[in-house]
Structures are given as C-alpha cells and as structure tokens.
C-alpha cells in the first residue's frame, strides 16, 4: 500500500511537472487538417525558436472540437491563437467575446473582403466551393441550382449542412438570396432526392467512385481526387451574369483575448499571414489559393481574380448561421 501511495505521489508530481513552460511557447488551436497545418507550424518553430503547442481538430469532432474548447475556456484561456479553416466560426467566437483585435502588418495586401474591419480575424490562403463532376457526365452542371433541377434528380450528393463549410455556404446563400428563395431551393433539393454525405471528402469520394454525378465540395477535396487520378473534373459554379459566383472560404487566424503569450501569438499570426506561408499552402497537397497579390496560384485551380466570386459579409453570415441551425437540423433529418 505504501509503495502504491509512493507511486501515485510520483505520478502526480510527474504529471504536474510536464505542464508546459510558459516561456518561449505559443499555444495554437487548429481547425485546418493536421497534415497540412503541422508542417507550417514546424517551420515557424525552426525559424523563430518559439515552441508551438498545437491542438488539432479531428474528423470525429467535425472541425468544431476546438471551437467548443475555446468557448468552454473563455474565462481562463489556454490558447493564444486560433487557426480556423473558415472565417464564419471566427465571427461566432468574436460575438462571444473570445477574440482580441490584432492588426498584423502582414495583412497588408489581403483584400478587405477577407479580413475583419476591426481586426478580430484575418483571412489567408483560401479554398473555394466548387462542383466536382463525374467525367463523362452527359450534361455538366454549371450552377449549384443543378441540385434543384429535375434533370439531375437522384444524381447529386452534398455534405450534411449541419457541419463544416457546407453550413457556411448555405448560410451565405440565406444572406445573398434571402430566406424565401433559399428555403425554396433547399426544399427543391430534397425533392430532387439529393443524397447526404457526412463530409465534403465523402461527397467527393462518392463522385469519384461513380455513385453520384456531382457534388458541391471544397476545392481541396476536389483537387486531391483529381491528383489521385480519379475520373472527375472541377466546375466553377455560377460564373454567368446572373450567377452567384463561387463562394470563397479563406482560412482565418485570430488572437485570443487574454492569451497567455500575446507577443508570441502575434509573431505566429504574422508568420501565417506572410506571403511565404501562403505560397507553401498553395503548393502543398491542399492547393489553397493565395490571397496576397503576386503569389502564383496552384496549377490545378484558377486564380481568384479570374473567377466571379460571391459577395459575402462574413459577419452577417455568422449571425445567419446561428439562426438557421435548427432549420438545417430539421432539413437534414427530414425525408
């Protein structure tokens, strides 16, 4: 019994001692996939000597696990920086009072549309929402309205709009088209027997395997299937005069209010917003599109300047997203 007590005591002391040193470190919560984000954070460590402690989101938590932690930790934040894979949830954090403003000098050159006016978050390296289409499909869809077109009945799939960038996209449509038109579109999408996948990745796999004709996914999901030699192609939706344009989803980086290491946090934010980081993300497997001018876009995608993009106010979209969650839950569970 005494030795058990001794062991327990040692265990506690050891565990407590392994808590991180507070000097020369920065803690970042990351929603971008670990396979893409970790190399960049390692480079930051090498270049600055600042140790990065990261928590990555997982597939299981649908990219919202660290969001929940940030909210739960509001009173006593552990994170310094949050690297989100889209700015809508950053807006939710801002509205909950979890973020602090920081105007990074590296944000110069990033278009205003992709940064918060009050500097609570700044966008970088974007994905776009594209249609991944089965090669050889007789009539290729060129708009997201194809989901409601009887011509494509039963041949489309979309990720569950309760999670991820699909939620953001639908919320953006609510702000752009208005409630009535968007709900009519959603209803028609259901009536058209649109299949639901659990993620954009799964939607892309369905199309790649020939189970469905097309899906609305993030550009990195489409590019990775294209690079893997799957019989698919990318369509940039709604490029016509009356089209909404493509929905652009930048990464977003933000400083946490009362961050334990604010100076190191700012250095990391500056690093992530730098041109070099955008270049690395553009030529990594995720093929993200740089927002700074003068950085070449990945070969597999068109540069943003060559595309018609959907005008979006991320603040409005964030508010709308909270409002429509019950509707989306009911929609996704309806038959």
């Amino acid at each position: 019994m005494k030795s058990l007590f001794l062991l327990l005591g040692c265990a506690f002391i050891f565990s407590a001692c392994t808590s991180h040193s507070t000097k020369g470190t920065v803690t970042v919560y990351v929603s971008e996939d670990q396979v893409f984000s970790e190399p960049l954070l390692k480079d930051f460590e090498k270049e600055t000597g600042i140790r990065v402690h990261a928590i990555y989101d997982t597939e299981e938590s649908k990219s919202t696990g660290v969001m929940n932690r940030l909210i739960a930790e509001k009173a006593n934040p552990q994170a310094d920086v949050y690297w989100a894979n889209e700015p809508i949830r950053a807006e939710i954090l801002r509205q909950k009072g979890i973020l602090a403003p920081y105007a990074s000098p590296q944000a110069e050159g990033i278009p205003d549309a992709f940064r918060d006016r009050e500097h609570y978050w700044t966008g970088f390296s974007a994905r776009i929402r594209v249609l991944i289409v089965q090669k050889g499909l007789k009539t290729k869809p060129d708009s997201i309205l194809a989901y409601a077109d009887p011509k494509y009945k039963g041949s489309a799939v979309i990720a569950n709009p309760l999670f991820g960038t699909t939620t953001s996209h639908i919320a953006a449509l609510f702000t752009f088209w208005g409630e009535q038109k968007t709900k009519a579109f959603m209803k028609a999408m259901k009536a058209n027997h649109t299949a639901l996948a659990t993620s954009n990745g799964e939607s892309a796999d369905f199309v790649a395997s020939g189970s469905y004709g097309f899906a609305l996914v993030d550009s990195d999901d489409a590019v990775s299937r294209l690079k893997a030699g799957k019989p698919v192609e990318i369509v940039y939706p709604d490029q016509g005069d009356k089209g909404t344009g493509v929905f652009v989803v930048p990464n977003a980086v933000m400083l946490i209010r009362k961050a334990p290491h604010p100076e190191n946090a700012k250095k990391l934010i500056d690093y992530l917003l730098g041109k070099e980081s955008e270049k690395k993300l553009a030529f990594a497997d995720c093929a993200q599109i740089p927002l700074h001018k003068g950085i070449p876009a990945p070969d597999t995608l068109k540069p943003i300047r060559d595309l018609k993009t959907m005008p979006v106010d991320f603040k409005q979209v964030a508010q709308k997203m909270i409002e429509i969650q019950p509707y989306l839950k009911a929609w996704s569970q309806s038959k």
Partner: peptide, 26 residues
C-alpha cells in the same frame, strides 16, 4: 479518444487522437 480530445492540453496528444487527426486527408 473522445475525452482526451476535449481535455488534453496543447502538445499532449495521445495516439488515438493523433490517428483521428491524420484521418482528415492523411
């Protein structure tokens, strides 16, 4: 894995959590 994901301090990921994070595009 689930509980660890929620409470593990930054930099202390366990193997099951690491596997989950790698499942996203690994």
């Amino acid at each position: 894995s689930t509980l660890t994901m929620l409470v593990a301090p930054a930099g202390t990921a366990t193997l099951p959590v690491y596997i989950f994070t790698q499942m996203a595009n690994g």
